[in-house]
Design a protein around this nucleic acid. Structure first.
Length: 878
RNA sequence: GGGCGCAUAGCUCAGUGGUAGAGCACUGCUCUUACAAAGCAGGGGUCGGCGGUUCGAAACCGUCUGCGCCCA
């Protein structure tokens, strides 16, 4: 569209329409409009404003990421919410930014270095971190540009990054506070170790899947001391320090307390009794490797067993002997081979399907590893996070997702927060020469001098993401933004990452902000799937780049398709056909507005009084206001699919298909009625475009500015229901629609071409449609009945009769077939309603309105049968 | 193994006690002066099976079958 200076146009100026091409071309509109919005500062939030605040923080995408449909979906939801609130007069902040994605980003840069034949160790820590920043500056954060394409109304002047100075200070502040409160501690435990990323990861970064492994039964000890254990991890037997059996297991009672020989090593290990052993599983005896299995670690603790580590950080066997230097998987077969040679393999099951943990980042099999790490003691924090939802201060939407939240937050293990990476917030703890441990706050000088060193680990990325709702607003400073915009209003995120960081934000928000939760509502959405409901994945080959669809059909089309599928908490299937359908809707909107502009639709001046409006005008205004109310209610309930659908159907089925068509007759006639219609048309489009704007911002902006001559729909007022309703006008137009549809049906059944003019005589005396005769004739291509008019067909419908002269024989067979079908439907209806009304139980117990409704249906069926029977009788005999 | 959920038109999904709906797909006719990315008309479902509650069940209860997801 060439209309880039809408303020220069007058409302209703016919020249505005002349500049609109017959097809909507999103590519020519979207980019320019977005730049204008940003330049105008519409998305900037003012902390000094008197307006009530509405705040949403973006779930920060990874700095390594690019826009996928999941983002597009989530952003469409957030953008619609914030755009509507902005129009409603809230001081609206949609806070943008990214997280530093510790492991992912470090991996990206390490891969770059590898191409140069270098490792991060060649550069050293400082130079490597420098290199990561350089990478971020050059190729990180692609998603920011893509968010602009999507139309995201974020305040770019406030963009934040979790590694920024201010946010790093927030991290250090909360670390110190938690440390001082005893909620952060250091301990040696079994953690999830990725032998490829060479770092600890948290429980939720482990993905379990059923893998084909092996279950090997090994005989430990000999003679009377023999005991068979089953394991999927034979290679860890080198680190076994006991065999455990259930205390009540009589099979092994005689062995408890004795020592047996561990094969291949010559070591002697005890047999211990532990209630955690399942006597039903395998032989009821298990090998115990405290250094390489979390359950075994606990058994070891209970029985004071030593831990013998046999694998290094890369999963390579470290103990002396023939297996030293073998990878854990090579060692497994080597050790089974050696045991077999000694005749100690009692049974082998291969493949044996069992659940194995994998690194969510690189899919490498996780190695449980005993190591010294930093932990957050989550007990009191998780309790508070659960209580905030339990006592209603925070609502989870949809409510069905609550058990999922409680199930997790109430059973939370302590959170391992240290990572053996270089990219991230370095743990602010210094160790002294004499074993001192000092946690340093943001305003404190680290201890200096001989022998003092800082912890080399960094913090889990989620540690900083958990601070996002307040760190982005300036915390720990009590900034005006923090005062104005905290707590945020709603957090929009996928149910799949409810645990990853919603719970973390809740814990940290409540803890840091004196018990004020970071948001009052958690609105959960589902995942985007393909058109057959399958999960999108690169390996399956059904992943879609949203930018391709945005290029082909426009961002609005992608957004509208996603919004139409957004039922709370459920997954959203999307296919190209559906995006095309949304594009078609945008085009329809475009052309309807184009028609309105060509015909002088206007928003100038007040609406005429109801008395000066036609039934069609009153009908559409009644429907318009009902739609405003409906859409408002649906927005407040996060029902994006339903509100989008309501707007789609109101716009297309009512405004475009009927009101616009009816207005053609009125406009052609001219006079005051035409003036009124121009004003109503302008009103209906104005309000409809404003209602649609949050979901399809671009096309509505282009059209609304052209229609109204005003600055921007972004800052227009959100429509309000005027309360105007007109049931009589609605009934009148419904009757009109019935008459028109019935005659169209007859025309189609008779094989008349749509444009073919037919002489007709209308008898509307029994209806309120007298004023609509011209419109009905126009819609049905009916000519006046001239001299020699001979009715060859007479159609009774809704009290009216339309007589047509088809100048010749009609297709009696087609009409008979049709009428017989209608008759069958009416007869079935009569039978059903009559049966109900004859049912004593129904008559005695059904509510008044239901009985009345059935009576009406019965009467209608009877009338239909009479009418159709008469029509059939009137048909010429074949 | 524990928990949550789903099964409605060819596909994807709405529909929490009173006439089974939408989008897309499908069939026929049309360039009717906003729009063929369109218009008009039409076809299509024993609401997974069985049993129960009820005057009345797609909906509520039980059960079976099939399929998801989360946790262990």
């Amino acid at each position: 569209m060439t209309n880039q200076r809408p303020e220069a146009d007058q409302a209703g100026d016919h020249s505005a329409a002349a500049t609109l091409p017959t097809q909507y071309a999103p590519a020519e509109v979207e980019g320019k409009l977005y730049e204008r919005w940003v330049a105008a500062g519409y998305f900037e939030a003012d902390a000094k404003s008197d307006k009530p605040p509405y705040t949403v923080v973006i779930p920060p995408p990874n700095v390594t990421g690019s826009l996928h449909l999941g983002h597009a979906f989530e952003h469409t939801i957030i953008d619609s919410l914030t755009r509507r609130k902005r129009m409603q007069g809230y001081e609206t902040l949609w806070q943008p930014g990214m997280d530093h994605a510790g492991i992912a980003t470090q991996n990206v840069v390490e891969r770059e270095l590898a191409k140069e034949g270098k490792s991060r160790h060649d550069l050293g820590r400082e130079a490597f971190v420098e290199r990561v920043w350089q990478w971020k500056a050059e190729s990180g954060g692609q998603i920011s540009g893509q968010m602009r394409r999507l139309g995201d109304g974020v305040d770019w002047s406030r963009e934040r990054f979790t590694m920024d100075e201010g946010l790093s200070q927030a991290v250090q502040t909360i670390f110190k506070k938690l440390f001082d409160d005893g909620l952060i501690y250091r301990a040696e435990r079994i953690i999830n170790w990725c032998p490829r990323c060479l770092t600890a990861i948290s429980d939720i970064e482990v993905e379990y899947q059923d893998d084909e492994g092996e279950l090997v039964s090994i005989r430990y000890g000999d003679g009377d001391d023999a005991i068979v254990v089953a394991t999927t991890r034979a290679e860890t037997m080198l680190g076994d320090t006991a065999v455990a059996v259930h205390p009540d297991d009589e099979r092994y009672a005689h062995l408890v307390g004795r020592e047996i020989e561990l094969p291949l090593t010559g070591r002697r290990i005890p047999v211990v009794a532990d209630a955690h052993v399942d006597p039903e599983f395998g032989t009821g005896a298990v090998k115990v490797t405290p250094a390489h299995d979390p359950n075994d670690f606990e058994i070891g603790r209970r029985h004071d067993l030593p831990s013998i580590a046999v694998l290094d950080e890369r999963g390579v066997i470290t103990v002396h002997g023939p297996f030293q230097g073998l990878d854990r998987f090579e060692a497994r077969s080597a050790i089974v081979g050696a045991l077999r040679a000694e005749g100690r393999i009692v049974a082998e099951k291969r493949p044996y399907l069992h659940s194995v943990g994998h690194c969510s980042r690189c899919k490498t099999t996780i190695e449980p590893r005993l190591s010294l790490q930093w932990w957050v003691k989550v007990g009191p924090l998780a309790q508070a996070a659960g209580d905030a939802v339990r006592d209603g201060r925070v609502a989870i939407h949809p409510k069905e997702m609550e058990p999922r939240y409680f199930g997790w937050v109430d059973n939370l293990h302590d959170w391992c927060i240290s990572r053996q990476l270089w990219w991230g917030h370095r743990i602010p703890v210094w160790y002294g020469p004499d074993g001192e441990v000092v946690c340093v706050g943001p305003d404190e000088e680290p201890p200096s001098g001989e022998g003092w060193t800082q912890d080399t680990d960094v913090l889990d990325t989620w540690f900083s993401s958990g601070l996002w709702p307040f760190s982005t607003l300036g915390w720990p400073e009590r900034t005006p933004s923090l005062e104005k915009f905290y707590p945020t209003s709603v957090l929009v995120t996928g149910y799949d990452i409810l645990f990853f960081w919603v719970a973390r934000m809740m814990m940290f928000g409540l803890y840091a902000m004196d018990g004020t939760p970071p948001f009052h509502t958690i609105a959960l959405h589902g995942m985007v799937r393909d058109q057959f409901g399958k999960k999108m994945s690169k390996s399956f080959g059904n992943a879609v780049n949203p930018l391709d669809w945005m290029d082909a059909y426009g961002s609005d089309a992608v957004r509208f398709t996603l919004a139409r599928g957004a039922n709370p908490g459920t997954d959203v299937p999307i296919g190209e056909d559906w995006v095309q359908g949304s594009r078609n809707f945008c085009n329809k909107l475009w052309n309807a507005t184009r028609f309105a502009l060509m015909n002088g639709a206007t928003v100038a001046g007040p609406l005429p009084e109801a008395a000066d409006l036609s039934a069609a005008d009153r009908w559409i205004l009644s429907r318009l206001n009902a739609t405003v109310a409906e859409v408002d209610a649906l927005y407040d309930d996060y029902q994006f699919a339903k509100l989008s659908d309501a707007l789609f159907h109101f716009a297309w089925d009512e405004v475009f298909d009927w009101y616009v068509e009816l207005s053609k007759t009125t406009l052609a006639a001219g006079g005051p009625a035409a003036d009124a219609s121009r004003r109503v048309l302008g009103e209906v489009l104005d309000v409809t475009l404003r209602l649609l704007h949050p979901v399809v911002p671009f096309v509505t902006e282009a059209l609304w500015t052209a229609l109204t001559g005003r600055e921007s729909v972004v800052v227009a007022e959100w429509p309000a229901d005027s309360g105007f309703r007109d049931a009589a006008a609605e009934a009148e137009i419904t009757t009109l629609q019935q008459v028109v549809t019935e005659v169209r049906r007859f025309r189609a059944d008779q094989g008349l071409k749509p444009g073919q003019r037919v002489p007709a005589r209308l008898d509307l005396a029994g209806t309120p449609l007298a004023a609509h005769e011209e419109a009905i004739r126009s819609l049905l291509r009916l000519q006046p009945a001239g001299d020699g008019f001979t009715a060859t067909a007479s159609l009774p419908v809704a009290g009216a009769t339309v007589a047509l002269d088809l100048s010749g024989a009609i297709d009696v067979a087609a009409e008979r077939k049709r009428l017989q079908k209608d008759l069958a439907v009416a007869e079935k209806e009569l039978a059903q309603t009559t049966a109900k009304l004859g049912n004593e139980g129904f008559m005695a117990k059904a509510p008044e309105q239901v009985v009345a409704k059935i009576r009406t249906r019965q009467a209608t069926a009877e009338a239909d049968i009479a009418r159709i029977t008469a029509q059939l009788a009137a048909l010429p005999q074949a």
